[in-house]
Design a protein around this nucleic acid. Structure first.
Length: 329
DNA sequence: TTGACCTCTACCGTTACGTCA
DNA sequence: GTTGACGTAACGGTAGAGGTC
């Protein structure tokens, strides 16, 4: 049941609630639409957690629950791929299997670490990984050779520093190949189960902990962008509401001025509107006209009469009071 | 069956490093 | 060469879920 109050400007309707209702995230949402991503993300995280737990318990969690975390972001729309196997289109389609071999070519024995990141090579102060990555990058991608050479030298320098000072915080830049690889994986799975993490780490010649951290940071960046988009949308909504409020206040002032210019209005009997819940027809017990208000009755609009403000008690000169009300179901 | 304890992982806030203008 | 802004890898703390005893 919908009541449309017609107070002059009938061409503009109030649409905020409609918009909010319509723009709930769906798989068909185009980019830019508002979504309730945080709650969805939480649901997805919980689902993934359950999935991971199922994996750890030793049985498959199939069928996978594909959750669209960011409907407005096509990058993050997961493909319908089985989660048990990582498919890397960037790798397999654009570069072929040779890339895989290159990535793994210089993988040292330390890459056979467990997934806890606590073995020798995964020590926070270990200098193994930067070397491996630079070897990999040099051999994988000739166009970055110069920079990677410098990186390698820097890495060597850091390694020696690390050897001297075990407290040095290690930070390395992932190569473009590694980043692209991880990005492609993220498109398919925003979270990883231990198997996937291990597989990715092996393929990229990274420690599982690094893969884990990368996904955590990637999720954080995604959430941040989502928040920015949501804030922008809410800001626009606020502006719209402010403008709407301003317009209504203006109309209210005009109508109050109209009231004072027509003192006989106060002497008129109140109008009571009743609406049948089934047919939504509106009936009135008075023919008094203040302002014409239309009641949106689906196909037809029935002009009725009603007071302009919310139901309230109006003072009458003779001391009586009478309620103006709109009765509806 | 229940509760304590442990492990794992996601998330969050923060820090520190690398890059670039 | 220096500096500040920015992006991001990495860290520590916390909470929740599941497993074990």
């Amino acid at each position: 049941m919908e009541l449309a109050l017609s107070l002059g400007d009938t061409s503009k309707s109030f649409t905020f609630l409609d918009k909010a209702a319509v723009n709930l995230p769906t798989n068909k949402d185009p980019p830019g639409l508002f979504s309730l991503a945080p709650s969805f993300a939480a649901t997805a995280a919980a689902a993934d957690k359950r999935s991971d737990a199922a994996e750890r318990r030793g049985f498959s969690s199939d069928p996978p629950v594909q959750l669209d975390l960011l409907p407005f972001s096509p990058v993050l729309r997961p493909q319908q791929q089985p989660p048990s196997q990582l498919r890397i289109p960037w790798l397999t389609e654009a570069c072929g299997a040779a890339r895989v071999l290159d990535v793994n070519l210089f993988r040292a024995a330390t890459a056979e670490d467990g997934d806890d990141g606590t073995s020798l090579s995964s020590s926070p102060n270990s200098a193994v990984s930067p070397f491996q990555m630079d070897f990999c990058t040099r051999n994988c991608n000739a166009e970055f050779g110069g920079r990677n050479k410098r990186e390698q030298q820097e890495a060597e320098g850091r390694a020696s520093d690390d050897d001297e000072n075990g407290s040095t915080r290690k930070k390395l830049r992932l190569s473009k190949e590694q980043s692209a690889f991880l990005e492609e994986s993220f498109k398919e799975h925003t979270t990883l189960n231990p198997k996937q993490k291990l597989a990715l780490a092996k393929q990229l010649n990274l420690r599982p902990r690094q893969v884990e951290v990368w996904f955590q940071n990637r999720r954080a960046r995604t959430k941040l962008k989502q928040t920015e988009v949501d804030c922008e949308y809410l800001k626009r909504c606020c502006e719209t509401l402010t403008e709407e409020n301003r317009r209504l206040q203006k109309e209210l002032q005009e109508l109050r001025a109209l009231k004072t210019s027509q003192p006989f209005y106060m002497q008129l009997p109140a109008t009571t509107l009743t609406m049948c819940p089934s047919c939504e027809r509106v009936a009135t017990n008075s023919t008094t006209t203040n302002q014409t208000t239309t009641v949106n009755n689906n196909a037809s609009q029935i002009p009725v009469e009603l007071s302009l403000s919310k139901p309230r008690i109006l003072p009458f000169p003779n001391g009586q009071a009478q309620a103006h009300q709109i009765a509806s179901s």
